[in-house]
Design a binder for these strands. Structure first.
Lengths: 182, 182
DNA sequence: CCTGCTACAGTCCTAATTGGAGTATCTATC
DNA sequence: GATAGATACTCCAATTAGGACTGTAGCAGG
């Protein structure tokens, strides 16, 4: 059993570590962090709102962050400490673990025999819309960030585009198979 | 918005529902289920061992499953009840929810500026190996299932192949960028 | 000025899920 | 019949997901 006192060398959890990473670039509020994550790796690294705020508190308690003074409104900015930077860099040295995917649409297709063809086709069509939208989002993001800085790092954006493109392609084949009488 | 047919409180969680789906094809033990999931949608629908057994119990308590008699060894088979079939089919009518991805390698690449190029290259190389292996697994599976039944449904396998191929392609571009001095 | 509407910022709670460590139970092999 | 190793399952703590809920600020209409 661990003592509940986590102020000594407490291991970072993945969410906390990624928050530290985003704060390396400068102070942010919890809200800012959510926006920043959503606009970058969000699709490949899900982080939920409720957890951000509790993690920020835990990280502050651990000495990895310190609170800035509130701006107008209820914005509580956090900035990373030297200890936070150190721990984050250390955490990043860990071999990235296995991927975790949960694609409900894949399950629906897998169990397609138990769904009416019309319903399945509807699910697929909706998924196509969502993925097309997300693809446009990535493409717009790519364009605007290239406009701001032609040398900017678009590696993760490229992953997003590749992923959405792949899904759209797969959904198209599913749609045609379904139409043929799945 | 709500259907009036709500008498069977569908407190089915996603994992439980998918277990019901796998049991539609016939009785299985918890272990069998794990194997079956792992060999089919496992990569797009993560389900963890510990949860399978507790879900099986919960589903049994809910009347959706009933236990068969233990075979040799400690194999406890479960079979789906009429109520279970009904609830599963109902659950499948739900619009499949948003996708959930967690790709630690994407995070490592995103924070690549804080990792040494050598370490990052190592991570990428390892990921390439893993994805190449998984691609081979899918390809072998496709071949053997086509051999057994040329008309079998390979839709989800195709997704697997497309996903691994896409990731390998992306990893290759990351590797070359990293080599250039990321 | 007051009211209602809406977007913003954060809190709180519970169910679901993960990730192991631990416990038997069988099979084979000597 | 001891024991090594694969098989089948149990248990628990930490993490995550997903909302419902509480305020606050800015603004439009009356």
């Amino acid at each position: 059993m661990e003592s509940p006192n986590r102020n000594v060398k407490s291991a970072l959890n993945p969410t906390g570590a990624s928050l530290l990473g985003f704060l390396m670039a400068g102070p942010k509020t919890g809200w800012d962090l959510l926006q920043a994550i959503d606009a970058s790796v969000g699709n490949f690294w899900n982080v939920t709102r409720s957890q951000v705020y509790s993690e920020l508190k835990a990280l502050t308690a651990g000495g990895y962050l310190k609170e800035g003074k509130e701006q107008s409104r209820r914005k509580q900015p956090y900035s990373i400490t030297a200890s936070g930077r150190r721990v984050f860099k250390q955490w990043l040295k860990n071999e990235p673990g296995p991927e975790l995917l949960r694609l409900p649409i894949a399950l629906s297709v897998f169990f397609g025999q138990h769904v009416s063809a019309a319903e399945l086709a509807g699910f697929v069509a909706n998924a196509q819309v969502r993925h097309r939208q997300q693809l446009h989002v990535y493409q717009a993001l790519l364009e605007s960030s290239k406009a701001a800085d032609p040398n900017c790092d678009d590696t993760v954006l490229q992953l997003g585009i590749a992923y959405e493109t792949m899904m759209l392609h797969w959904l198209k084949t599913v749609a045609s198979r379904t139409a043929l009488g799945g």
